[in-house]
């Protein structure tokens, strides 16, 4: 499965949700489908996208929040799965694209390569109520639909190929993305 195709498949569903992505390929692939003001791209601070998602979800319980994460970022902050599980906001879907690779920083293999480390099992062990694994586009679409329709914290681990875009760049500065994301919430969610 290609991450870009997986993101494309759920892109229409993201329009009414607050979306936080990790850096690099994942952010670029979402951006290339068309930026929306409800998207925040964390282009550094690896591991904290899910923490941001938790902070947003706990404070906006009536709004669905989606985090697009990666194996490398999650491995830098495994504790986040335990914190998510402890406070388990039922409006948060945490999607982990597992390409077994630190793709954006040279393609080095990560601990999840060849199935050595099972992030879904870790999420389950952390106490996340709904954990799903997806290796095909159909499984992925079904898992995401279940998570969006369901009413509990979900972690979806999607196995994807270690390929990314051939270009990087966005038409705004990083703080501008934060300002616009905060403004979007103020005007359209809490306002």
């Amino acid at each position: 499965m290609l991450r870009s195709k997986a993101i494309e498949a759920i892109y229409p569903e993201l329009e009414d949700k607050l979306v936080i992505t990790i850096m690099g390929a994942c952010a670029q692939e979402l951006y290339d489908l068309g930026h929306k003001e409800n998207f925040f791209y964390l282009q550094h601070a690896m591991g904290l996208a899910s923490s941001i998602g938790l902070g947003v979800a706990l404070n906006l319980p009536h709004k669905k929040v989606v985090v697009l994460d990666g194996d490398g970022s999650v491995l830098m902050n495994l504790g986040t799965l335990t914190t998510l599980a402890r406070y388990r906001p039922n409006n948060l879907t945490h999607i982990i694209f597992d390409n077994g690779s630190l793709l954006s920083t040279g393609g080095f293999t990560s601990h999840t390569t060849s199935g050595i480390t099972d992030l879904a099992a870790i999420a389950k062990g952390a106490g996340v109520p709904n954990v799903a694994k997806a290796t095909t586009p159909m499984e992925f679409i079904e898992a995401v639909a279940d998570a969006f329709e369901g009413n509990e914290l979900s972690v979806i681990v999607a196995k994807v190929e270690a390929v990314g875009p051939d270009h990087f760049g966005m038409d705004f500065k990083l703080p501008e993305n934060a300002f616009r994301f905060e403004r979007y919430i103020r005007e359209y969610v809490t306002g």
Partner: peptide
Amino acid sequence: MCLIEVAKEEEAVGIAAGAYFAGE
């Protein structure tokens, strides 16, 4: 009061940023 206890403090920076975005 909503008190969120983290596993490690760097998480708290992300959660605080999320709370700020949410207007809290």
